[in-house]
């Protein structure tokens, strides 16, 4: 019986099974990459300079772990300062008040325009500029007079330098997020009787988060690594802890590897956190929600038909 469609006994059209095109280029490229990778792995494992034994020895050394804790503290506190400052600066920048807007612009100009290392050194040496600090009414009486040298420790100088610098970058990220929200959203919120602050907090910022989160995740990962600059002002974070050890035992390479391993572990944890945060703030942005890594793995392993070709 002639039929315009190719059908099998189930009545459904057959899927096309054709001989795939040969792609020799892909095979050659893959072979080259494999050879290079094998050579690298061999050199890393075999070469004595890496001293994997020493790496193992120091990986959980209490001085390294103490440095890791300081690195994490610096990252968390500096990012917290950066995010809060960033939101304030972004709102100031978008404010109809020209003085607020310009002040914010000037802050961003200054802190983005100078290297963070210079800023760190600056805060570390702040006592040379203001030996005596005071807290009180501007141009009026002061209540406390802390000594700058004792108040601004190396750790606090690190926090200030990293956090205030981060605020400038976060301000631009938050501003981009706020601008990305459709103006109709503010119209709708205000027509329902919300004030400008409520509109920003309840309607605009939550939607801006979708745009703000991915670059903020990058900033956090970048901050984790930038904290190593604090070693220059003698904050005993991960890198400086390792430097203190290898200045005594003269084994810099294995200790730098130890440090790198810990940085990689931390950035990996941050990647996972970022994924879940992005998923949370993507609600309503797409029809479906992207599956978690675990769900994808489960689907790949337990699905009845494997399609890994």
């Amino acid at each position: 019986m002639p039929s315009s469609e190719v059908t099998n006994p189930t009545g459904r059209p057959d899927e096309i099974r054709a001989v795939p095109v040969r792609r020799p280029g892909r095979w050659i490229a893959a072979a080259i990459v494999l050879v290079i990778a094998a050579a690298l792995v061999r050199s890393v494992v075999v070469s004595p300079g890496f001293q994997w034994g020493v790496v193992g020895e120091y990986l959980f050394d209490h001085r390294i772990l103490a440095g890791l804790v300081v690195t994490i503290e610096l990252t968390v506190i500096a990012m917290a300062i950066g995010v809060v400052l960033g939101v304030i600066l972004a709102v100031m920048r978008l404010s109809p008040n020209p003085l607020l807007s310009r002040a914010s612009w000037l802050y961003i100009f200054f802190f983005r325009g100078t290297p963070v290392l210079v800023q760190l050194l600056f805060w570390y040496n702040i006592a040379a500029l203001y030996p005596k600090l005071s807290l009180g009414i501007p141009f009026g009486p002061a209540f406390v007079h802390p000594n700058a040298n004792t108040l601004i420790t190396a750790f606090r100088a690190g926090i200030l330098g990293l956090g205030l610098n981060e605020g400038a970058y976060m301000a631009e990220i938050v501003r981009a997020g706020i601008i990305s929200v459709d103006e109709g959203q503010a119209d709708a919120a205000q027509s329902l009787g919300m004030t400008r602050v409520q509109t920003l907090r309840r309607i605009v910022l939550p939607q801006a988060m979708r745009v703000i989160i991915p670059p903020t995740g990058n900033e956090t990962i970048s901050m984790l690594k930038t904290t190593s600059l604090a070693s220059v002002i003698t904050v005993t974070e991960l890198l400086y802890a390792a430097q203190l050890i290898y200045s005594v035992n003269f084994k810099p390479i294995p200790l730098l590897i130890t440090v790198s391993i810990w940085y990689l572990v931390c950035t990996s944890v941050l990647y996972v956190g970022q994924f879940y945060l992005e998923r949370y703030y993507a609600r309503g942005a797409t029809r479906g929600i992207s599956p978690t890594a675990l769900a994808r793995w489960r689907a790949a392993v337990f699905s009845p038909k494997h399609e890994w070709s």
């Binding site: 109709g184 959203q185 709708a188 919120a189 205000q190 329902l192 009787g193 409520q198 309840r202 942005a285």
Partner: peptide, 30 residues
């Protein structure tokens, strides 16, 4: 403004909220 309802050409629903939350948002907050 809370006493005047407005409906827009492009709906302007809050995309990060369910239909129910869109409707309850202003009564709860305002």
């Amino acid at each position: 403004r809370a006493e005047i309802g407005m409906v827009f050409q492009h709906f302007n629903l809050f995309p990060n909220m369910t239909a129910l939350d869109n409707v309850t948002c202003a009564p709860i907050r305002v």
